[in-house]
Nucleic acid binder design. Structure first.
Lengths: 154, 154
DNA sequence: TGCATAACATTATGCGCGTAACTAAATTCT
DNA sequence: AGAATTTAGTTACGCGCATAATGTTATGCA
């Protein structure tokens, strides 16, 4: 592992993060969304109402981030919050009709984005890609709760 | 390209971005650096003094971001700015001795980070990884200036 | 039962990134 | 040479992410 390779790899990851996020931002802008928010809407669409702690877990970000994101999405009318009946600390977050409609639009955009992203890669690479990325994520995940599609063979 | 795959791929990219950045943050914290700043220092270390426009190009981010990053790195004593002799609009940015020392430490950390990241992947995958990531970056790059290690075979 | 501890959520603050709007200097084009 | 355009840089502001500190409710244990 020489520095040239390490530098190339880390830089490639950084640039992919930046550009992929920028492209997502461009696609989501017409919906009035910022990148990151789509993940929250998709999670609610997948699994139904969740409390914020579950959301921060699923999204892989910290509770304060969820507080602010939900506040903005609520102000925009895409989600709704109500107190959890069995736990006075928690609030349950769920999609409004507007949020559900938005989730459907996001799904279309994300199909297009994924297709665009893997253009020019071999079929085998495309098939292996999610596992490769998830392995890398697990490798650097200090919170020890990454999706772990592939266990790290350390 | 079904939605399940698209969702898995986009989510994997998002999570890798988050966790890789978080891991970088943890490694850089003892040096008093935030992720993103190391890229600027490494770029200066690679190519010598540059004007900010060249930096924003090399880092793949916008000029205002460079303005703020350089301001903080200058305040920390890691870089220095001086007016460009041939262009009164531009300022030349260069490493101080402290910045050079920091760049060397970053190189060690980055070797470790890259090694950690690819743990458990096959040798072939590891070898192909930078090209795969760069291709993906080029595919979603709207600014049309990605490193283009592999040209998109569209 | 009562108390210490853990968990849910929030506020405050800071950083890297973005866009929009602006100034000033350089360049291009009649 | 003078006017229009491009380029370098900044300021102002917003968003997603982070950590630290705080209040409130649940829970586990003596």
């Amino acid at each position: 592992m020489d520095f040239a390779y390490a530098d190339a790899l880390n830089q490639a990851i950084r640039l992919l993060s930046l550009r992929h996020r920028a492209r997502a931002a461009a696609l989501l802008a017409p919906l009035g969304l910022h990148p990151g928010q789509e993940a929250l809407l998709l999670e609610l669409d997948r699994t139904g109402p969740r409390i914020q702690a579950q959301l921060s877990d699923a999204l892989g970000c910290e509770p304060p981030s969820v507080t602010l994101m939900t506040r903005k999405l609520e102000a925009a009318g895409h989600i709704r919050r109500r107190p959890a009946p069995s736990d006075k600390r928690a609030s349950i977050v769920e999609l409004t009709d507007s949020g559900k409609a938005l989730a459907d639009q996001i799904k279309h955009l994300w199909r297009a984005l994924a297709k665009e992203t893997v253009t020019g890669l071999s079929a085998e690479t495309v098939a292996a890609l999610p596992d490769i990325l998830n392995t890398m994520t697990s490798n650097v995940d200090t919170s020890r709760s990454a999706t772990r599609t592939a266990a790290g063979t350390v």
